[in-house]
Amino acid sequence: MVSKTEETQLNRLENQVDNGGGGAWEYLCLVRKLKVRRSEKVLKHGLSILNDPKKRSALGPEEWTLYEQVAIAAMDCQCLDVAKDCIKVLQKKFPESKRVGRLEGMLLEAKGSWAEAEKAYSSLLEDNPLDQVIQKRRVAMAKAQGNISGAIECLNKYLEIFMADHDAWRELAEIYVSLQMYKQAAFCYEELILSQPTVPLYHLAYADVLYTLGGLENLQTAKKYYASTIDLTGGKNTRALLGICLCTSAIAQLSKGRNKEDKESPELQSLAATALEKDYKQRASDKLGLLTSALRSLKI
């Protein structure tokens, strides 16, 4: 999760580091803490720290964490030589470590030698069959090979054991959305909302899925979840505001012929529209015309 203050801090540090202002280690720590994917920058700045013996020894035991971070970033950038060197150093320091074994497996994955990677992972799983990270790697490997149904099957099996793992639920939901299996995706997002009810982005994603599914009942639920997203973000989420407008017009279109038995909160849409107009005026005044014409076409 990345909150607004953390995001601004990250952007500030990134700017500072890119312009040679120092603070590379703080930046790398923040990237690790927030779990964002900035492989190119991590590789560049991490390597410059690792290649400077003075800076490296100043880190103390954190040095090894940095080696791991740089190794993964290097694999992500396909700089396999660097990754290999980092893993070699770690291997020397921690022989027989599972975590290093996992890195070696990932290196095989990055090379594209799937069979060998699979062999490495299954030998690691033999020692500890409940290793969550390695089980997740197997799912990722199936996905990388294009075997989406295999990945889903594997992930479902994993989730039967580790039901509280919300990252895995999110991954499953995203896979289902990519396959346009919205009902299943909706189920996953329900799980996510149950486990972390204060994360507005899950509410938003659930509402998106329901809106895509369509149908009067789903649209009404989607509108409620867009409203809860607005509640949790204080109205600063543009997508949720637009979602409210779209849902209202879709509901109005669907229930046009029928008698309107439940005319619920007619002011919600106008409030959302005013909030949107205000937001656009403040941040992108040149696009205000587009917004007003879009909103006008929605109001029937």
């Binding site: 999760m1 995001e7 964002v36 790697r137 490997m141 990388a144 509640d231």
Partner: peptide, 25 residues
């Protein structure tokens, strides 16, 4: 407050456990 700057979540972390390497790199 869930909508204050410190608490308002603007993006989810990249799901690094499920990271895959066949992309444009």
């Amino acid at each position: 407050h869930p909508d204050s700057e410190e608490n308002r979540i603007v993006s989810l972390s990249a799901n690094l456990d499920f990271m895959i390497f066949n992309h444009r790199a």
